[in-house]
Nucleic acid binder design. Structure first.
Length: 112
DNA sequence: CGATTGACGTACG
DNA sequence: TCGTACGCCAATC
């Protein structure tokens, strides 16, 4: 696929491909790009995502345990939680319930 | 220009 | 099984 795109750009592409009501983890994206240990960069990409493109559903990206690690970055309140709940997900204590069930693996779904 | 931080994850003890 | 340490790369201080 577009392997000429930068790491950040690839992250954006993947995140944009996340279907409605589905979630994934930073590590999954990083691993898909071949840089499993660079999961922090995925987070940084998200941080810049609102600057590069605002059509990035970053709220569907959480850490590997389904915890809303970046909810504070979306809004001062529980905006991220509300969005995810609106997508049909169940959030308890800033944590996605049945995370594995709603998990969207780019390696399986995008399957290059 | 050097040191620290950061939306994480894996490895090791 | 749980806790701590390190890696990764870019941006910011």
């Amino acid at each position: 696929m577009s392997e000429e795109l930068s790491f950040f750009n690839q992250v954006y592409e993947i995140v944009k491909c996340i279907p409605f009501g589905r979630v994934t983890s930073y590590g999954a994206i990083a691993k898909y790009l071949g840089t499993a240990k660079s999961s922090r960069m995925v987070g940084w990409a998200m941080n810049n995502s609102h600057v590069a493109l605002q059509n990035i559903p970053a709220h569907r990206v959480v850490n590997r345990i389904g915890l809303l690690s970046g909810k504070q970055h979306f809004g001062t309140g529980d905006e991220m939680k509300k969005i995810l709940e609106k997508e049909g997900l169940e959030i308890v204590n800033d944590q996605i319930q049945n995370f594995s069930h709603h998990f969207w693996d780019p390696q399986i779904e995008l399957k290059y």
